[in-house]
Amino acid sequence: MSSDYIITAEHLTKKFGDFKAVDDITFNVHKGEIFGFLGANGAGKTTAMRMLCGLSIPTEGKATVAGFDVYRQTEDIKKNIGYMSQKFSLYEDLTIRENIRFYAGIYGKSNAFIKEKTARLLKQLHLEQEANKLVGSLPLGWKQKLAFSVAIFHEPQIVFLDEPTGGVDPVTRREFWNMIYEAAEVGITVFVTTHYMDEAEYCDRISIMVDGRVEALGSPGELKRSMNAASMDEVFLKLARKATRSAD
């Protein structure tokens, strides 16, 4: 196992009764990489991601995240990852500043760190004027960007994004991806699930899951070449058509 890998998964499997939600998947993610995790609804993406986040214990196989074992060291994993889900996850009845303070607080960050970094972040997002406004009053695009900033506020090694751009307009999506690039530049590994094939093109490497298995793995260019497809859309459709499971 190379030390360059920040996530490794070998023969990772999760069964619910007889149902194999994740069926023997093997892949590695490099440090600082933007790794796209694709698949139709019900293909097992979320289950796989939950195992990597330490929310769910695998049935079989091995996996490490940031060098920690997903069976025994879930607490260490949790300290080193950030997470943002498709469900919007800031408190609407708290102000921007309070949201930041709260999330930084649960990662045990010092007051000095929080203060200094909050000022920097607000400036970056041009939200200084709104810092004491309730999050509920912000437009969705801003909320999403803020949620991402909060997810990496404690400077994790890896950030897991579960369909982060759902319901957001194309311009904001573009801006959101710029933020993802910036995060990757400072060395944060980005593990992102998405439904948008144009977003898949932005990733360094992607894996496509079908029926609980990883059916394709590689850079977008490699995948298109090997599948003889003109676009990621085509790659995805060719693979997804093989699915026998219906979406949940």
């Binding site: 929310l55 997470y83 943002m84 889900s85 996850s89 408190y91 990662y107 997810a151």
Partner: peptide, 13 residues
């Protein structure tokens, strides 16, 4: 419902 519980469960709390 809001999904904040999930974020909290992913955190070290």
């Amino acid at each position: 419902e809001m999904g904040t519980m999930e974020v909290m469960l992913v955190s070290p709390v």
